[in-house]
Simulated assay, not measured.
Amino acid sequence: MTSSDLYPVSRLAAVQEATAKGGLDALLLTPGPDLRYVSGYDAKPLERLTCLVVPAAGEPFMMVPRLELPAAEASPASRLGLEFVAWDETDDPYALAAARLGEVAKVGLADRMWAMSSLRFREVLPGAEQVLAGSVLRDLRMRKSPAEVAALREAGEAIDAVHRRVPELLRAGRTEREVARDIAEAILASGHATVDFVIVASGPNGASPHHDVSDRVIQPGEPVVVDIGGQLHNGYCSDSTRTYSVGEPPAEFAAYYEVLRQAQEAACAAVRPGVSCESVDAAARELIAAAGHGEHFVHRTGHGIGIETHEEPYIVAGNGEPLEPGHAFSVEPGIYLPGRHGARIEDIVVCTENGGERLNNTPRELVIV
């Protein structure tokens, strides 16, 4: 799988078409996931402006600080036939971009654009309404191509390899931070370019879904939630959660963990084209609520994933959008008992023509170490 598969030249034309259909005159894409998705260029976010300007009609161009020009030319963006407009230290790149773009009424700004840049674009394009570029990019980014699914599958296999090592790292007497350090090293060793997050939540800390890590010493008989993820060199992300127990867990925990496992299984089984995002959430939530733990499931069932760990579609009540082949997202119900313990099981799932494919395949049964 090459960068030309993940970031095809044809994508730029599709983005221009979506921009026109969305009623926008242009997209202004500064460093971040939107720019990388459209061009393949993982540009550094700096105070010096880098911006891909994609007009609805006309030739796209990229504003690049002169000292960043070699990096831009070496990136996959060089295959797009773009003009790289190098600007010098005494230039005003915002004014240069506006002059080239001409009169526009509505522009889409990269969703992660710094406020500094959005305000400068407002100054140089005073007559233009500013909206989020995501309004036209979201549908394209949600529907993963076969190459993107393959990249996510590779990321899933890499993070699975790390989870297989977790049992040898978890033991009573170690701190969460010590375990997390070893896991972070394993994430990089598995082929990831970056470690995006490591959650090691033992005992009562497991009741906090986004606990992170602490210097708490893991005790015998405690459940431990391990939620980990990173980004591969190709830009695509991993994210998987498993719950372990250091020795035999409390009976109460073992009972609701089985409920959670069944709920996660039901939600994964519910995935297929045409099914609403909220119905997948309901498939997990209803089982958990029926077991008396509805109030202990405090977050959505899932989030989309791709070149960002969290992106659309979101698997949550109120989202009636139907799933389509190529949609990729987490299925991660959890049960959290404040002050005691908690559990979560998370797989990345891709909607296929016939159902859903799990991209994480380590055991979902409780692993006792």
Rank of each mutant, 00 (worst) to 15 (best):
E157Y: 03
G108E: 06
V224A: 02
G206H: 06
D139G: 11
L101Q: 12
I228L: 06
T309I: 11
R112H: 15
L69A: 10
L52P: 02
P167G: 07
D91M: 07
S135E: 14
A150R: 13
P220N: 07
A77H: 03
E357F: 12
V104S: 08
I288Q: 08
A105F: 08
N205L: 03
G108L: 09
G22D: 02
A20L: 10
S276C: 01
I218D: 03
D212Y: 09
V64H: 12
A263K: 14
S39L: 13
C237F: 02
D196P: 00
K144A: 11
Y314D: 14
P167R: 13
G102Y: 09
E312Y: 13
E312N: 11
Q16T: 08
T50R: 01
G32C: 08
V136K: 02
V367D: 01
Y37H: 02
L82M: 12
E332P: 01
G334L: 01
I305K: 04
H310R: 10
P204I: 03
G334M: 09
R181V: 10
A290V: 13
E248V: 02
P322M: 03
E103D: 12
E311F: 06
P70F: 05
R120D: 06
P45Y: 01
G81Q: 11
G206I: 00
F253M: 03
S202A: 15
D160K: 10
A95V: 06
H211Y: 15
G320V: 00
E154L: 10
A343L: 13
R79Y: 07
V224E: 00
L323C: 05
D25G: 13
E89D: 09
I228R: 02
I159W: 14
A343I: 09
E68T: 01
A71C: 02
L119V: 10
L109R: 08
I159L: 06
G294Q: 09
P313G: 02
V280T: 07
Y336I: 01
E154K: 13
A184Y: 09
V350P: 01
E168T: 14
A43M: 05
E265G: 04
V369N: 09
V38E: 05
L125E: 10
F197S: 08
V226W: 04
S279H: 12
I307A: 05
H341M: 13
S118F: 00
A110T: 09
E83N: 05
A43Y: 00
A254C: 12
